[in-house]
Design a protein around this nucleic acid. Structure first.
Lengths: 348, 348
DNA sequence: TTGTACGCGTTATCAA
DNA sequence: TTGATAACGCGTACAA
């Protein structure tokens, strides 16, 4: 078990100085061809690679991006990571991940852990708890130390930084309009409580679509789920709530749900109640994940282009990291990713 | 935009030496209470945190685990990551990820990138291409440099290292036995080409179950898919192959598939052919992911306990990293995770 | 009780 | 053409 070889060891072995070895390996014109060849051959033989940690310390640059997400077992977030990874690796960066598990304190701890020199900048999506608590000090602190942040999807207007977001409002609006055009007269909305930024925007899109078509929203048609619950284990409760929605005295021939799971549950409940999809009730969800694609019937969804979001976020961050000018009057961008409606069998 | 504060800056500001500051912050008894308080107050005010990179360099230990997986947009792999992350963070480690995208060269490059000081050890699952090429030099090289590796799920017998695997053989065997007990007389197998280690073992489990029950395997009942194809985009081809399987002259009343997607596709094709599940044909898959749970009907599957695999792998690696004794005669463990059969509506 | 010196592995600058 | 030195930030053995 030999340790990784270092410049020092090569120097000692070849009886030259460390700096000579360093220069020879970087093909410096200062060094004679003789020594160069000797050193390079030796280095190749022992498979020398410069130590990243030492380089990071010297250059005060780690070439590593930290990504903090609430949850990794989520098609959307893993697709974003894939996008980040793709761009980052192409541009010579590594990706290190931290999971907040939707918890404020884990988000803070994870960020502090990484901010102490491990990474050059963050790409993150805010945890639900942080959104609830509205405590953003860790973001401002990180940024004030010169470490750039790019937020994606779940962003927050209080913080000035680069952002990559989905056009949640218009995505939702288009989906609901699709239902209206398809003949739905009474469209239910299954959404989250309002503190979740994206849920709020999608709700707004629903309302705007109705308004544009002179339809009046009815409280009975809107179900706001408390999504702090873990539906991996509480799926039943979700379905019960949806069943109550269907059993309220309102007639329902269309459902717009702000995520895949709600939409799938709605389909399940509808079928259970003897309704045919899409003939009796049409359903559209948000987030084009595996569930939508492989559901029966296939679920029509608003696709968010998660991977593209990751790519854009990574480019944004690396651009900032590599921009020479250390401008005081920083300019932050917000990139809005348009959505697509992926039509499957749950709509006519 | 102030940079992160360092010991040096604190020392200068307080007009003491760097080592005094260092000692004061670590509460060394060498330092007077006066200075301690002064230094600690100042450090707190400026939110001092030691620089991880400097510590890594000094200690020759990064407290970071590298994890290389073929694909992240995969319920199984993201669950493993979650397990690794959980244990790693609890034990004071970070997790850095590299995706091989099922490519040999990306696997090699990623490992080399991380092995140069960025991490203390690897947790990995081998890419399909590497399994095909049977080229494992990057693993042996990494290990010979004193960097431990823990392989999970897709392992390889040629390499001596710690491993965490699923009991693929018995998992498959139990599943097929379940079908037999449930009355299936003619059970089809949908599997992968043999170079995929797990596919091979699951196939073996299928064969053993048949043998144990005096049933003779028939070539017509076994479909070996070339899973180098990307079924995100080639789903149709997969379904066509399965349809041919059903249309062969063999009667089929049971299907065992070595992954979720194959199983779901089998259900889809069966339904299309007018067969009722589970009355006409019963289906069992492998990997207990979201797809199985939310399929209609719910898919009975062999659960692999992915998160637990990640946890065990992380413990194994960290134990090795922290074991004082740098024993030459290394002992490697292989942990076998038992599977569970999760029964849903696709079986009687 | 405090400070000096060293080393982790690298590169850049300057001296020989 | 080569080598010595300093620096990145930290902790610690040893000297003052």
């Amino acid at each position: 078990m030999k340790r990784k070889i270092t410049l020092k060891q090569i120097a000692k072995e070849l009886d030259v100085s460390i700096s000579t070895v360093s220069k020879a390996l970087r093909n410096s014109p200062e060094i004679s061809n003789d020594t160069k060849q000797k050193v390079q051959a030796f280095a190749k033989l022992y498979n020398y690679r410069p130590n990243n940690i030492a380089l990071s310390l010297k250059n005060r640059k780690t070439n590593t991006i930290g990504i903090i997400i609430p949850e990794i077992v989520h098609h959307f977030f893993s697709k974003v990571i894939r996008g980040v990874e793709l761009v980052a690796n192409n541009r010579g960066y590594n990706v290190i991940i931290g999971l907040s598990n939707e918890s404020f304190s884990k988000e803070v701890i994870n960020m502090e852990m990484l901010a102490n020199g491990s990474i050059d900048g963050f790409i993150l999506s805010i945890s639900k708890e942080t959104q609830q608590l509205q405590d953003f000090h860790h973001f401002t602190e990180t940024m004030s130390q010169g470490m750039p942040i790019v937020m994606f999807d779940r962003v927050v207007s209080e913080i000035d930084c680069d952002k990559v977001i989905v056009d949640d409002l218009n995505g939702a609006k288009n989906a609901v309009e699709k239902l209206i055009i398809n003949g739905c007269k009474s469209i239910a909305l299954i959404t989250t409580k309002d503190y979740v930024s994206v849920g709020k925007l999608r709700t707004q899109g629903y309302l705007e679509a109705l308004k544009d078509h002179k339809m009046t929203p009815k409280a009975n048609l809107i179900l706001k789920i408390d999504d702090t619950l873990d539906f991996e284990t509480h799926l039943d409760e979700l379905e019960e709530e949806i069943e109550q929605l269907f059993n309220s005295n309102e007639y329902i021939d269309g459902v717009f749900a702000v995520n895949e799971l709600y939409a799938l549950s709605a389909m399940k409940v509808a079928r259970k109640l003897g309704l045919n999809i899409p003939n009796d009730v049409q359903v559209i969800g948000f987030t084009d994940g595996v569930l939508s694609k492989h559901a029966t019937p296939g679920l029509t969804t608003v696709s968010q282009h998660a991977q593209q979001m990751g790519e854009r976020a990574a480019d944004l961050l690396i651009d900032k990291l590599e921009s020479e000018i250390d401008t005081e009057e920083e300019e932050f961008q917000t990139i809005v990713i348009a959505t697509d409606l992926v039509e499957r069998e749950s709509t006519k």
